[in-house]
Computed example of a mutant assay.
Amino acid sequence: MPINTASLVITPQMLSLIAEIDEFKGAWRALGTLAPDRLSALRRVATIESIGSSTRIEGSRLSDGDVERLLSNIEVRHFATRDEQEVAGYAEVMETIFASFDAMAPTENHIRQLHRDLLVHSSKDARHRGSYKTSTNHVSAFNADGKEIGIVFQTATPFDTPRLMAELVEWLNETLDQKQLHPLLVTAIFIVVFLEIHPFQDGNGRLSRVLTTLLLLRSGYAYVPYSSLESVIEASKEGYYLGLRRTQGTIRSDAPAWEPWIVYFLQSLRQQKTRLEAKLARERLMVERLPELALQILDLAKAHGRITNSQVVALTGANRNTVKKHLQLLVSARHLVQHGSGKATWYSRA
């Protein structure tokens, strides 16, 4: 059955989320005017977060620090564990996407190629990388220790997979070309159907997040490499699996329930851009050459909503008079607002 979007109702919530994301997309050209070295640093941090989060969602135990250390020695080309093999493959595929997204149309051949490259270092996957599955698979959820805690949903049969993938890719390209739906909605639907099919024996979750990045970049969301969507998903795994389960169980019905997954997906994209906005704000403050203690105070004010001199002293260990001078500096520069006076004084972000 071809992709059925007749039951899709674009709600006010969806429209509001899309408008907010697109507003940031349009503003990125002005917002992303940091020096090249700072943009490069932002992208590297986001890439490490993405690799770490995406592999941990699938059961890896490597921290972001482990990922960073591994990538700093990537030229070694020998990876002792499966977790390391998955990280290395994910890193290489992401760099391919960042460098060549405009030349990578979302065809079945490119999808299989990305899957092959994703698992290129995984010796266990040598027989099936780049090829659709030949055995039944299912989607499992993992706990913080990397142990499987249950099946999330059943997937398409190996027999049906080639036909379903051909239909999905054809729908994707036709819908994008004809501009029948907003590209964020197209991307969301493509990803949830891709995961419902689960076309490869392994690596489908990681590949779905790679394909998300590819489709977003091809749709003009140029800021995507600088903020990790994968880390947003990792932090909201319960909502991720719930959105998938509520939609995927209906995909082959006469009236698929697209809304649960689409809303989760759009909310995650909003959180991705919100995190990047915060990073850019901090970068601009650094350009103003504010002292490190002043930056710490601003972070505390954002985290706590309101702060006092005593709180800053307790949390930073800085001298009370030094903290007072920095607070006055930030108020004068209009980064903080002072409330009250004397011992009752407190501060909030401007």
Rank of each mutant, 00 (worst) to 15 (best):
R77E: 15
L39E: 07
S219N: 11
Q248M: 12
H110R: 12
I74W: 10
E20S: 08
V9P: 07
I57H: 03
E75I: 12
V193F: 01
N143Y: 09
V313W: 04
I21P: 06
L276T: 00
T107C: 08
D83F: 02
H138N: 14
A19T: 14
N4C: 00
L70A: 00
W28D: 03
I111V: 15
W258D: 01
L119W: 02
R334C: 10
S131L: 13
Y347E: 09
L164T: 01
V76I: 12
L266K: 07
L214R: 07
A255S: 13
V67F: 05
Q271N: 08
A80N: 15
L242Q: 12
L176N: 05
L164I: 06
L336N: 03
E234A: 11
N109S: 14
K124L: 10
P158N: 04
L266M: 02
S53T: 09
R56Q: 11
A88S: 10
L285R: 15
Q272Y: 04
Q296R: 10
R349P: 06
K325D: 14
S348D: 11
H78T: 14
L34A: 09
F79Q: 04
D160V: 08
R306A: 14
L215N: 02
N309S: 15
D299G: 09
Q248L: 03
L242W: 08
N137E: 09
S60W: 00
T274H: 01
G340Y: 05
S50Y: 03
L298W: 04
Q272D: 08
A235R: 15
T161Q: 01
I307E: 03
E174H: 11
A91M: 06
A318M: 00
P260A: 04
F24Y: 14
G220E: 08
R282N: 11
L315A: 10
A301M: 12
V263Y: 00
V313D: 03
R275N: 14
V45N: 01
E167N: 05
Q113K: 09
G305F: 12
A144H: 11
K325M: 13
S228N: 04
T247C: 10
Y226P: 01
A188P: 01
V169H: 07
A141N: 08
L176D: 07
A41V: 03
L31K: 13
H128R: 09
W28P: 04
Q154C: 07
L176G: 05
G317Y: 11
D83E: 04
A41E: 12
H304E: 15
E108W: 01
